[in-house]
């Protein structure tokens, strides 16, 4: 398989695009007081106060690290799995809040991003892309710029 196969190109596009999304998400949260993001999380009425505060402090930095790893092509398999897992949790929370009729901010990209059918569609698409990247990145290791362990051979 040549270095620029279709799958490699798809992975490259996905990781750079998703990496950019994670970096933007981190930026929108880190540029404002962290308590405003905590309010968005609290509005979902899913977590106790201590968990809301913990997530609000840690999550933006996690998003930043995932974004840097994906855009830089470093530890892509692990960053993509972590990203997909976080997005799956987000999406589940959004579905829960939407089904309960909560008129709240999505919290995905800072304040003013109201939870709606559009944000569900958007984040559902991102989750699909993240799952695709995680799946594709675990199937091989010889990507341009990637530093990972070799993937298991068919006989192992």
């Amino acid at each position: 398989m040549g270095p620029w196969s279709v799958r490699r190109i798809v992975v490259l596009v996905l990781r750079v695009a998703l990496g950019g999304v994670w970096l933007y998400a981190a930026y929108t949260k880190l540029r404002q007081p962290w308590l405003l993001f905590a309010m968005s999380i609290d509005a979902y009425h899913l977590l106790p106060e201590w968990a809301v505060l913990t997530v609000a402090r840690i999550l933006p930095w996690t998003e930043l690290v995932i974004g840097i790893l994906l855009v830089g092509g470093l530890l892509v398999r692990y960053a993509s799995i972590l990203g997909a897992a976080i997005l799956a949790v987000f999406f589940g929370a959004m579905i829960s809040a939407y089904s309960r009729g909560l008129a709240i901010d999505c919290g995905c990209f800072g304040p003013g991003d109201a939870l709606s059918a559009w944000t569900l569609l958007r984040d559902g698409t991102l989750l699909t892309a993240a799952l695709a990247l995680a799946w594709l990145s675990w199937r091989s290791c010889h990507w341009v710029g990637q530093a990972v362990l070799p993937a298991p051979t068919p006989n192992q």
Partner: peptide, 16 residues
């Protein structure tokens, strides 16, 4: 000026 566009709970608003 900082907008808060939701029915913020009192504990969170108090912290802020």
């Amino acid at each position: 000026r900082t907008p808060i566009e939701l029915a913020v709970s009192y504990p969170m608003l108090k912290r802020y």
